[in-house]
Design a protein around this nucleic acid. Sequence first.
DNA 1: GTGAAAGCGCTAACAC
DNA 2: GTGTTAGCGCTTTCAC
Lengths: 330, 330
Amino acid sequence: MTTMSDVAAAAGVSVMTVSNVLNDRPKVGPDTRLRVLEAVDRLGYEVNLTAKRLRSGRTDTIGLVVPRFDHPYFGELAAKLAVALAATGRHLSVEQSNASPEGELEALSQARIATYDAVLLSVVGLHYDDVDRLRTTKPVVLLGEQEMPPRFDHLQLDNETGACAATRHLIDGGSRRLLMTGGGDEGFPSMSTMRTVGFERALREAGLQGAVLPLIRYEPTDARAAVAERLRQDPTIDGIFAITDQVAVGVLAGVRDAGLRVPDDVQVVGFDNLAFGEHIDPGLTTIDPNHDWVVERVIDLIDRRIAGEQLAPQHLTSPARLVPRGSTRS
Amino acid sequence: MTTMSDVAAAAGVSVMTVSNVLNDRPKVGPDTRLRVLEAVDRLGYEVNLTAKRLRSGRTDTIGLVVPRFDHPYFGELAAKLAVALAATGRHLSVEQSNASPEGELEALSQARIATYDAVLLSVVGLHYDDVDRLRTTKPVVLLGEQEMPPRFDHLQLDNETGACAATRHLIDGGSRRLLMTGGGDEGFPSMSTMRTVGFERALREAGLQGAVLPLIRYEPTDARAAVAERLRQDPTIDGIFAITDQVAVGVLAGVRDAGLRVPDDVQVVGFDNLAFGEHIDPGLTTIDPNHDWVVERVIDLIDRRIAGEQLAPQHLTSPARLVPRGSTRS
DNA sequence: GTGAAAGCGCTAACAC
DNA sequence: GTGTTAGCGCTTTCAC
């Protein structure tokens, strides 16, 4: 390991001057700078980021904690976040909170959060109390559809409006016997509760009744089995709002299993606009979560928090937009 | 920020004793331990990981550098890696190498690599020379199908055998006019070259001729357009080996666009066994990359490297397995 | 413009 | 068992 003082010795200057050169601080003579850069190059020196972080207190790295790496929703969000942060010279580092059963909350420990300048925390699967227990010196922004302690900044989608738009789209396309797969009122403002409220509002406005099919897990396999069985019991269902695109994939399969066609017999709408929805057959009509908006707001927010700006906890709602494709008729 | 010496003062012991307690080192009296833990609890102390890392030289964190967060292949691999590492008390941190156009290789700098105990580097999209330029003190394991400097440990799939098995499966299912989408001999042992070799070997063994349709990008959109056009030119094609599952999604759409059915008119096989392939219609026959095997080998390898074991660079090949689903007939 | 001194919070090594 | 000393590699502060 070559250190800064090796470079200083080689260039015949002090450590401080090396530091000044490498950090582009003003007041360094042009010839001194050159001598230093030459020595850096010759020795192949690179800064020790850990030492730099300890001394300066900054890391130029933002943490994103997601429940699972293999959920495409977070992959798509993370990719956009990383690009936006890179544009301002910072890095995104992604960790998985669900990696171990016992240490589920370890990624959320003050100790780990403190290794970043700020942390974006996807709260899917976390409980209110777990999050409420967080005591942290660094800014934390919550992302997700759960109800969470109001003292945190929190960004979420416009679940109700999105679900309502999705349901209206089914109705506009001619569906009259609607089912929501993965819905249900959980008794508090969860993703499921809010999307169910939107579903039911659209029904009410159209003077229709609908059914809600709850799911324990929002997995294609579970949705597929549940939908196929439901359609066999009630073959009159002609429109399904799936609570997520992952669920919608299962719904499409379940409709096929029941011997019905999409969109002719049953229209299907999802929620999240995952990339694959554009390419499957039929294309999946869905609600776009507006990741670009989320990225823009979240970066603005952490910048202000990192700068130490005092402002009340922000609770922001991302507008949602319908993306019509082949799984619906209108 | 409360530090270790705050705790030491509160417990009436030295900093070293606090450190010994918190790291479960032996030789600490039971009552001392209790007093320390009480003080830790009362003050809400948590260790400063940056300081710990600087002093100890360990980070208990493994880095995984992927080209893009939104490619499901890496998400699925990362999820399994994270679980396996968590089982031994370590963390996985994922970074994206392609985040900024100019600083494409910054995630690969010695400085950033040194912030981990070891780095797993997905070489998709990286050039031989870029990787060859890496000078690093920490173990680096290369993952991926490119040819890379042999001084690095390197894990890859058995591309040739996998492609050969996929192609044989098409032939077994009755296809005689085969097309490989996304193939081509790039003149060096790349993923494309090796899978194409496997494709052609299977053809040769069956006494058949086939065609190769190169793609610039392995994206569904590109594959869809290319395949649709090719099928219009040559409607006798009755079996397609897609170089990846992502490409296969586009192939399935392209076959539909050309007015043909899968698998009745055209059988389709992919490569990667991405999760969505199980749930789309038809289910995607594919080659499983054996992530479990990769995870097991890669962890064994970094453990030995971190322990300082001297061994020649390892070049390991993961066995690949056919997963038959509805997109093929046999 | 440049450099010397101090110290970020922790742990390795050793003394007692 | 517990404490003392030293120092990981860097940046902050301040003197010149």
